[in-house]
Simulated assay, not measured.
Amino acid sequence: MEVETKEKKIEKKEKSGLREWLESVLFAVTAATLIRWLFFSAFVIPTPSMENSLLVGDYLFVSRLHYGTTTPVTPLQVPLTHQTIWGTEIPSYLDWIKLPSYRLPGFSDVKKGDVVVFNLPVEHPDLYQKFSNVLPGLKPHPADLRTNYIKRCVATPGDTMRIINGQVLVNGKQQERPARLQDEYFISTGGPVNELNIFKKNGVVDYTQYTETFGDSIPLNDEPGYIIKATNAMAEKLKTYDFVKRVEPVLMPEHLKEPFLFPDSEIISWNKDQYGPIVIPRKGTTITLTHENAALYADAIISYEDNENFLLKDGVLLDHQKPLEKYTFKQDYYFMMGDNRHNSADSRYWGFVPKDHIVGKAVFVWMSIDPDPVSMLNKIRWDRLFRVIK
């Protein structure tokens, strides 16, 4: 005869369908959040600043392992969001708690030539209004939730960088140009051309018909033609057409000061094609402050290094209202530029990228959708799928 035990009398309650669903969702969100934070994230290219290397509509995987992921500064945040809750303007975070940021070990440091995703530094609460002319619509955000930008690193901590006639020189040596880097060219055509067949057929998507002089860069007056953004290979191909009289780069001349360029100083006359020399700050390096380099380094010293009592006044950096003669940097910095050199709001316009703003290295394109295809059959750029980013 079987004896009934107390345990057998207690019926195990089965999990409801709703509970199982909630547990599955919780597990999936937790796993996705950890993967996104520790290993890699997905991004989409929204602007043409990296063309022709990366195109608008490219979807990327960005490795956080290469440089080491950073711990959250703003822990009170809706999972799998960045600045706002999906499809709304409602902030997805609360800044009631702010934690110190630490970087976990990575595979390597940021190298010259790397395509890097980082948080835009000038969304700092003390800087976003200052740079609103360069980047309209800037809003202040915590350091780890600032807008993600993607550019190519052209100079690393301690480097001396200069741009001469559009060519980047680092420590006196010309840097290798990325294969798909775009410059601005003037094409003399003698009149209008079939833009769809000529330009788009050759990969040129940014072109403007031009009939007037272009300052000091184009010597002939009222010469009909086009201003285009193109790679060197594209420009050489266009030279082969019979109706093309000449193709030449459009460069701003030396000593022509460009408005809204970094740094905002009357004693510096640089432009996007003639820039520097400028020394990139390195952790532990001590500099003697002058009127010129105070303009270069004030934003970094005051806003990115947590120096609350520092102030730039009349070109002089003050510490507790006393002139600061020397300063030792607390972290490394980088100089970033877009591969579409004449259509990129980059470090030439808003300055250095602090190491604690680095997110990760762009690794490969996993999907590419053309926002303006010739036909729906060309909506997906099949030739760009799983392309390694160089």
Rank of each mutant, 00 (worst) to 15 (best):
F262Q: 02
P263C: 09
S265H: 04
I267D: 14
I268Q: 00
W270D: 09
N271C: 15
K272Q: 15
K272E: 13
P277C: 11
V279I: 15
I280S: 10
P281F: 13
K283N: 14
K283W: 10
G284C: 03
I287T: 04
E292H: 09
N293C: 13
A294F: 01
L296T: 04
Y297V: 08
D299K: 02
D299A: 04
I301G: 10
I302S: 01
Y304A: 11
N307H: 12
E308D: 14
L311I: 05
L312A: 05
D314N: 12
G315N: 12
G315P: 13
V316R: 07
V316Y: 00
V316L: 01
V316I: 05
D319Y: 04
H320R: 12
H320F: 06
Q321K: 08
Q321S: 06
L324D: 02
E325P: 00
K326V: 10
Y327W: 07
T328E: 03
F329L: 10
F329G: 10
F329H: 10
Q331H: 12
Q331E: 15
Y333M: 06
F335W: 14
M337D: 08
M337F: 02
G338L: 02
G338M: 02
R341H: 05
H342A: 08
N343W: 13
S347F: 11
S347H: 08
R348C: 01
Y349S: 11
W350Y: 13
P354Y: 02
D356W: 05
D356C: 10
D356G: 09
K361L: 15
K361E: 14
F364Y: 12
V365Q: 08
W366I: 00
W366A: 00
M367S: 11
D372T: 03
S375V: 09
M376C: 00
M376E: 08
M376P: 01
L377W: 13
I380L: 10
I380E: 03
W382L: 13
D383M: 06
R384H: 11
L385R: 04
R387D: 14
R387Y: 10
